[in-house]
């Protein structure tokens, strides 16, 4: 293509990048230095490093870690089984379909399932534990989040397992490794990139989703995302909200750097 037409393609796209990628980041940075009265101040950052926000950040990370861990523990075996099925692409599609249903509807379903008279409590009653308050606890928050994130974790792991050359597994077995050893020393290390991609896909949203905490956990759990929403839409303290947003962005960059997977393949399918 000639120079002229190339420039024409660039115009709307670069305009989009400037307005919706670069400008918002700069504005968030700018607002993070703004006090409630609109003056330039570092007080937001001072606040952030005070005990309240520090604890909030720690607990948010802790919950995100738990959610990622449980999601991984459930998803890896699922992906492993899936790759061994005969019509694996169809089964995979069936696993993915629930993730296309509006997240809010699924979260809403748990209002009923975990409710006082819901099936979960009925089950606890049957096995003799008796009904307990499940909604508005941190347990329900982790439980529902894991449910929501499972498909996002399965997909990259499935792709990694699917690409794994079965000859490696056969060789390992031929050389006398037990199936556990084969898994630990061959299968898992060779699919670690899928695991990293999955963890990244789960951890960042787990830090930032606020509707699950609001609907399921009441005010028992406050994540970084909940705090940002609170500051922007409830207390109208955009400065403080932006400061937390800046730290969430920094956390995101660190996580992406750690998981070393900057290519968010199309395989991720859908964002959370």
């Amino acid at each position: 293509m000639g120079n002229k037409s190339r420039n024409l393609f660039l115009i709307p796209y670069v305009f989009w990048i400037a307005l919706f990628v670069v400008a918002p980041i700069i504005l968030v940075l700018f607002y993070s230095f703004r006090g409630l009265d609109g003056s330039f101040t570092l007080s937001n950052y001072q606040h952030f490093f005070s005990s309240t926000y520090f604890q909030l950040t720690l607990s948010s990370f802790w919950y995100a870690f738990l959610i990622t861990l449980f999601t991984l523990l459930i998803s890896y075996p699922t992906a492993l089984v899936l790759t061994k099925m005969r019509h694996k692409q169809l089964w995979l599609l069936l696993i993915i379909v629930p993730s296309w249903i509006n997240i809010l509807l699924k979260v809403y379903a748990f209002l009923g399932i975990l409710g006082t008279y819901g099936p979960f409590n009925a089950f606890l009653d049957v096995i003799g534990i008796g009904a307990v308050q499940l909604l508005f606890t941190d347990f329900s928050f982790v439980f529902v989040s894991v449910y929501i994130f499972i498909p996002f974790m399965i997909l990259p792991i499935f792709n990694a397992l699917d690409k794994l050359n079965p000859a490696f597994v056969d060789a390992s077995r031929d050389l006398g490794a037990s199936s556990f050893e084969t898994f630990r020393k061959v299968i898992f290390p060779l699919t670690i990139n899928g695991v990293k991609a999955g963890c990244q896909l789960v951890f960042i949203p787990a830090l930032s989703l606020f509707m699950i905490t609001r609907l399921i956990a009441g005010n028992q759990v406050i994540t970084l995302g909940t705090a940002i929403e609170q500051h922007f839409l409830v207390t109208q303290d955009w400065g403080m909200g932006s400061t937390i947003a800046v730290f969430l962005i920094i956390a995101m960059i660190i996580i992406m750097f750690l998981s070393g997977n900057r290519k968010w393949g199309l395989t991720s399918g859908k964002k959370a």
Binding site: V21, I25, S208, L209, W264
Partner: peptide
């Protein structure tokens, strides 16, 4: 291009609100 794909929704929402 990929910034908006990897950004959490809260960040996109908040920064667009400011914008």
């Amino acid at each position: 291009n990929n910034v908006l794909i990897v950004s959490p929704d809260v960040i996109i929402g908040a920064s667009f609100l400011i914008l």
